[in-house]
């Protein structure tokens, strides 16, 4: 997702790969045949992304079970969904997930990047590869692994027993009090390595003169972190936050394959509501409404992160 590194609006005005004569100044010639290069991708994008997206919005204004005739209800679905206690719970859980999936990994990654910023790391390639392993595993595989770790007779409880903490052992995913943070920690595990590697790579690119200057000014490790490391990592932080918050909000496969939203509704997420509404209770209007809200949430949060962490100086 190179969203952060590209600027879609700014096309290079003199770019011309065609074998034609150079363009006349001031009057750029449009190259209509170039559309043939663009068309096939756009057809796929229009049919399988834009059209369904429009349909989601359209469907959200109807009450429909997929069989009998649909009834127009206008904004009623939105009123129902936003007033629904289960949906509110899902929104609250989403916020908790943002903490576990995005804030925690980012914080861990930043602190570690701060500690290691000026250190030559031996075996960096190995550490990077290992820290990235959670990223390449399917959400279903991750879920199966953690179901085992969290199980009543699983390694986590065995570990606690060893330290005499058998008082707090339990089936972590089946307990109302611990299910949500337990699923949350899976997200932390998936994302922390990515954040570490991302920030570490960024920190090692910060010019050492900046650190030397800070040190001459008498800055300690903490001030050095806030005045040099943190500002130097703005682009990486922004990219990491977009990636992790999006993952937190839309997450389906890990939640579905660990708790399916349970016990009760304690780990319910918008994506689980969408799936259940569409494919269990056949309430397409409600499913579409939650889809639209989820998409909006992700768009707004992404825009917010990109805006708050935008480049304020011309170039680093």
């Amino acid at each position: 997702m190179p969203a952060v590194t590209t600027r879609p609006g700014s096309r290079r005005p003199s770019a011309s790969g065609s074998g034609r004569v150079a363009r006349r100044p001031g009057r750029p010639r449009k190259d209509w045949r170039a559309l043939f290069y663009v068309l096939p991708a756009m057809v796929f994008f229009a049919v399988f992304v834009l059209y369904p997206l429009g349909q989601s919005v359209w469907l959200s204004l109807w009450k429909w079970n997929g069989v009998t005739a649909a009834t127009w209800v206008g904004p009623q679905n939105y009123i129902d969904v936003l007033g629904d206690p289960v949906m509110r719970l899902a929104l609250r859980n989403s916020l908790v997930f943002i903490v576990f999936y995005a804030v925690l990994p980012t914080a861990v990654g930043l602190v570690l990047a701060g500690v290691m910023a000026r250190i030559r790391i031996h075996g960096l390639a190995f550490f990077r590869a290992a820290l990235f392993v959670p990223q390449i595993l399917s959400g279903v595989v991750v879920a199966v692994a953690w179901r085992y770790l969290y199980a009543a007779d699983g390694p986590l409880n065995g570990f606690l027993d060893l330290f005499g903490l058998d008082g707090i052992t339990r089936a972590w995913l089946g307990d109302f009090a611990t299910a949500l943070p337990s699923v949350g920690l899976i997200g932390t595990w998936v994302m922390f390595g990515l954040c570490m590697v991302l920030f570490l790579a960024g920190a090692q690119r910060i010019p050492t003169e900046l650190y030397e200057a800070a040190r001459i000014d008498g800055a300690g490790a903490v001030r050095e972190f806030f005045t040099v490391t943190l500002p130097g990592l703005r682009r990486e932080i922004s990219f990491g936050l977009v990636l992790t918050t999006t993952y937190a909000l839309r997450n389906f496969d890990v939640v579905w394959n660990t708790t399916s939203g349970g016990p009760g509704n304690s780990t319910i997420m918008p994506s689980v509501i969408i799936y259940k509404a569409a494919f269990n209770t056949r309430d397409y209007g409600i499913a579409a409404t939650v889809s639209v809200l989820l998409t909006l949430m992700i768009l707004i949060l992404t825009a917010l992160v990109l805006f708050l962490l935008r480049d304020r100086e011309p170039a680093r």
């Binding site: 969203a3 449009k30 997206l53 918008p270 994506s271 889809s291 998409t295």
Partner: peptide
């Protein structure tokens, strides 16, 4: 190439970068 409406096309594609599957499923 000088694609007509090239900037618009890129802008529209930007939607796909952040759009969750869950939103269109």
């Amino acid at each position: 190439l000088r694609v007509p409406m090239g900037a618009t096309i890129l802008g529209v594609l930007l939607i796909g970068l952040v759009l969750p599957y869950e939103g269109v499923i």
